[in-house]
Design a protein around this nucleic acid. Sequence first.
RNA 1: GCCCCUGUGGCGGAAUUGGUAGACGCGCGGGAUUCAAAAUCCCGUUCCCUUUGGGAGUGUCGGUUCGAUUCCGACCGGGGGCACCA
Length: 858
Amino acid sequence: MSRYNAKATEAKWQKIWAEGKTFKTDSASEKPKYYVLEMFPYPSGRIHVGHVRNYTMGDVVARYRKAQGYEVLHPMGWDAFGMPAENAAMERKVHPADWTYDNIANMRNQLKHVGLSVDWDREFATCDADYYGKEQQIFIDFFKNDLVYRKESWVNWDPVDNTVLANEQVIDGKGWRSGAEVERRKLSQWFLKITDFADELLEGLNGLDRWPEKVRLMQENWIGRSEGLRFDFEVTNPSGDIPAKIPVYTTRPDTIFGASFCAISADHPIAASLAKDNADIAAFVEECRAGGTTEEAIEKAEKKGFDTGITVAHPFDKSWKLPVYIANFVLMEYGTGAIFACPAGDQRDLDFARKYDLPVLPIVLPEGEDPAAYTIENEAYTGPGIMFNSRFLDGMDYVAAKAAVIDRAEAEGWGERTVNYRLRDWGVSRQRYWGTPIPFVHCDNCGVVPVKSEDLPVKLPDDVSFDKPGNPLEHHPTWKHTTCPSCSKPALRETDTMDTFVDSSWYFLRFCTPDSDAPFDKDTTDSWMPVNQYIGGVEHAILHLLYARFFTRALKKVGRTNIEEPFEGLFTQGMVNHVTYKDSEGEWVFPEQVRRRDDGTLFRSDNGHAVTEGRIEKMSKSKRNVVDPDDIIDQYGSDTARWFVLSDSPPERDLLWTEAGIEGAWRFVQRIYRMVEEPTTPLAANGAIMPDGMSETAQALRKATHKTIMGVTADIENLHFNKSVARLYEFANAITAKLEGDGAAEAMREAVETMVLLVGPMMPHLSEELWRRLGYKTLVANTPWPKALEELTIDNTVKMAVQVNGKVRDTIEIAKDMAKEDVEAFALARPNVTKFTDGATIRKVIVVPGRIVNIVAN
RNA sequence: GCCCCUGUGGCGGAAUUGGUAGACGCGCGGGAUUCAAAAUCCCGUUCCCUUUGGGAGUGUCGGUUCGAUUCCGACCGGGGGCACCA
């Protein structure tokens, strides 16, 4: 029996594709365009199985579309800036650039072994000066269009590493590297005005009908639009720095007569001015700032406040005075940093009121409650109801009351209807080396000045030291010293670099024209955009995808594109999981070290320790439940790995990696190979014509062939790769079934050729190899997708189930176009049916043509 | 706490608009081939009942329907997102 040599064959075809530039994309092509993109990888050093799954899915789409006659853009690059490179520099004394480019070289090599239909000529890394220089240009464009600004803002500061930490890098209130207690500091930071686009980004979600509902929902929640009333409280006892008015925002203006106090954030300007002359207030404000970075701390945090002594007048009754508290649960970043509190209608306000013994007046009466007896105890009521205890609102539905209060506020001029967003502007400053330098200069005369376009890129210095904590750009002896682009006097460079999410917010545009002197060529890029199918991990559902959407809109605003939404279709694939193994010492064990004894017990190959199987978890280095794609490809070949990651699990769900599964895929590879090399029925000659009279089995095979074409096409179209895999298995079973009589050789030839073409997107190397062995000189990669002959797939008879009282009692095979009455009569006469209907009265017979007959009898 | 998704054999999972539940794969059992093994091929494999045959069955309990994995309600389990957002 001949065996397929995957390793040698795959290398051969990869070479042919590369040398023939098979997957080079021509932007000038007359064909319709299709842009397939997978989220580009971070060059961590090695690819993992998750990458294989992600890129295989994209590759199936790309190859399928190419076969469909599209000019396909399917590029690859590297999201190459970020902290791990600096960590490596600190730990191993390697330069971040060297570390990164070495990793890229390794991973590129690994990816090439997967056999992706990528146009490698378009490859770039975000850490290429050519790329980040263009990014600096975009940043300056944004600055000139008021989309970039500087603002003092609170950051997580690691006092040991002397750096700002992202929220994700703060673990239990401590720096993830140093372990030091994180401080809050106010620093001048660069921001991008994503909030200008809040409404657009929200509205735009409606048009993204090829995005997962889940992702749209997550973005919607993240943007967090709310409608309410903004109004001013008049301070009744203003003095010194205390202003005459305190603006507040509420989504529940209907509850205004349940107001009990006003609360301001510890970061509110009023709190700050009070703290100047009052040590107790200063201490309280400090306390508020210290606590509460972690979720757990917030959950457990007690509501705390400080009575400022200030009072404000109720907007509807100037004689009604409300105390003003500084409260630890009020956020400066949302709304106006101050609230009116109605304890009966808000749990936080209620907790606070109970603690400080403030009034709790119920104002919304739930249905069925007695207004005389209804009280609020320890649970606020936030549901619907009728207003009471609310003067002119009494008796109104709470929704009508909302509108009534806003209308009055607007008419009387002390408030207005306002929309608020949870979304904040995007702080992009990072005090790090390995990122895109923010292209600005600080001049004593001219202030903050953008670098001139002709001086871009502002390159990172090569000679940097990571010995000292903090930002190496700041420590560099000369780099930051420059001259002002405007007045030419000595000035200082900005030493902040950009958040790496900026790099990934426009790379898909650069791929369209990677050699452009501009960030990208507008016309060509617009001809490719939007990305027709974007594929990546759901972990990017919010940040990356929202930032990319914002960037595209912002780039439209500055005139660089006419596109609004970057990704027409989005697919989020699941993770790859594997069982975990632990040995008797409690140490995690790599799967390849696990051996099985005859009695089924497991042990470690290196030291013989007993091994137990643990939970199935996401592959992670720390738990050692990882499989190296290189090993798999070396042993079974890329096609086997590709086939396996597409099998079984729906692509959006997690995939369980098993040894048995990969072997199953390998068996299938061999099976297809044998279909060509050792066919059970000899194949007709290449190009043979179907004879007129064909045997029943030959016709059945033809029918299976064309049904499979239809099914697999629909499945790939809908990204249901697991279903197309199942269909191809079924088709393989049909091919191996007994075949004889006239036309057998021709039907077999057609079936096998179809199989080879249909598996092409999934197992491209095997497909090319067999296509050649079938006598073709062309590449499958350049061969059109097979077309189903629909007339062959139509059945003349149908099988129908016959139910009696909803239970299946018989199946009948009848002519497809048999009249309803005839079907009914036929079914009623069947012995398996009469057995159940004899002695009963037939009440009703339901005939659904082609599907079912149900006889109701009792 | 709020929002969302999900629950089908030993396992991963199929099942147009409600119409024969369990396709396909894995695993397992049996057989063929072989001196033997690997590989390959064939048969069986939801559970229960004594079989020809019947009964139950898609997390649980109800509802709508001739008919529910599919639609509706309540509950239970698993997963995800957000989180003091006024």
